[in-house]
Structure formats: C-alpha cells, structure tokens
Amino acid sequence: MTAYTGRVATTARGRTIGSRIAASLLYPLGLPTLLLVVWGLVATRTTSRFFPDPLTIAEAFRETWIGPAFVEDVLPSLARLGLGVAASIVLGVAAGTVIGLTHWLRELLEPLLEFLRAIPPPVLIPVVMLLLGITDTMKVVVIVSGAVWPILLNTIEGVRGTDSVMKETAESFRVSWWERLRFLVLPAASPRIMAGVRQALSVALILMVISEMFASSSGLGYRIAYFQRNYLIAEMWSGILLLGLVGVFLAVAFGLVERRVLRWYHGIREVNRA
C-alpha cells in the first residue's frame, strides 16, 4: 500500500505527552529553522553579494527600523494604508449595498464596474498622480482606487444573495427599511464582504509599496527602493523582511476580525456539516 496511508496510521497511534508537545513545536518551527541554517551556510560560502547571511540581515533590521525610522517611514506608511483600507470599506459597502438593492442600478452599472475592476490597480498610480500631484492624499486615493473594487463587487453579490424568504418575511412584518438593512441585509452579505476585504487588504498593501516606490521621499516602499539603488543589500533585505512581517500581521489581524464578525456564520456551517 502507499506510504501515504501508512503515515496516517503511525501518527494516530498513542504517544506520550512529551513527544506530542515536541512534535507540535517541531512542526511549525522545524522547517523555518532548517532553511535559515541552510541560508546562513550558503551565504557564508557564496561569493554573491546579494545574499547576506541571516545574522547580518537581523543586525541591519535592528539598526534600520528600530528607532526614528520607524516613526518617520513605517508609521506614516501604515497610517496611509489604514486610512485607505478604511475608506475603501466604507465606500465599497455603502455603494455596494445601494447598488445591490436597486435592480435597475445594478444592471446599469454592471459592465462599467466589470471594466473598472479589470484595470490593473497600479496603472492608476500615474493617473491619480496627474490629477492630485504627489501628496499624501494621492497615496491614499491610489490605495482606495484599487482596494475598493473587490469590496464593492462582493458587497453587491452578497446583498443580492440575501435569502428571499427572509426578505419577504421581514417585509410582511413591516420591519423598517433601516432595521432590515441592519439585521438582515448586511449580516447576510457579511461573508462575501469579508472575502472582499481580504482581497482588498493585499491589493492595498501592494499599492502602498508601489505608490511610495514611484513618487515619494519617505515611507517603506521608498526606503527599500533607496537601499537597492545604493547597494545597501542587508538593509534592503531587512526592508523586505519588514514588509513580510506587515503582510503576516495584516493576515493574522484580519483572521481574528473575520472570526469574530462571522462567528454566527461559521457556527451555522459547522452545524450543517455535522
């Protein structure tokens, strides 16, 4: 029989608690540690200057980002990112709800939105630059102009997919428009909205970096591009690492928020599955 099935059988067999704890630590940490060690060994042997060893990068990370640079470059970037994402959510959900609830409006705008969504978001950076100049507002607008689409389109779909029986029940019980929105339509659309927000987050992060690489004299994206142009290799790697950490942090934070917002939904799904 296959090795695959044999493996399952051995893990299922009883084990001591100690080895189980060791396994639960070893699994998540084993491979990253191994890779770091291999990287370190390769980096010390290779002649390529572009791959410094992990310790040098860690050192550069500490020197570059911990200190005033954090306040000058990282925080403003993150603030713009947060502002852009927040504006996208508000705009996307509000407009999406209206469009999703109005039949003719949806049909009117569908092809247009389909086209606007298909524009690769970074292409909008030069356009927004042209319209607004190189300002902080421009960077936030760039983020919104890319991140709003997944939220908007998912909200429209979600609102449209509200259970019709529930909708009619709410109508016949004369639940007010506002209450219907608050207690029926938005919760019904929330799984789709959250899926949209997840997509929007990664788009927003990309746009934050590129808009700064393109037109800025501060910010995370600018710094990384600056290090590269000046051959500050370890510093550049530390910037990539920091961006990675920001990405991971966003993913984790979003996961927590999503679990909280959609607790009822996951509950229902679990009940249905069982």
Binding site: F227, M236, G244
Partner: peptide
C-alpha cells in the same frame, strides 16, 4: 504540517517587495 508556517509567512509578503531584489 511541516510547511504550514513557512507558507503562512511567505504568502502574505507582497510580491512587489521583491522588486528591488
């Protein structure tokens, strides 16, 4: 199981961060 953390760390890294590299 062994690759899970690696994947969860590498995946959210915005690919544009790799442009300088």
């Amino acid at each position: 199981r062994a690759t899970h953390t690696m994947v969860e760390f590498l995946r959210p890294i915005p690919s544009v961060a790799l442009i300088p590299l």
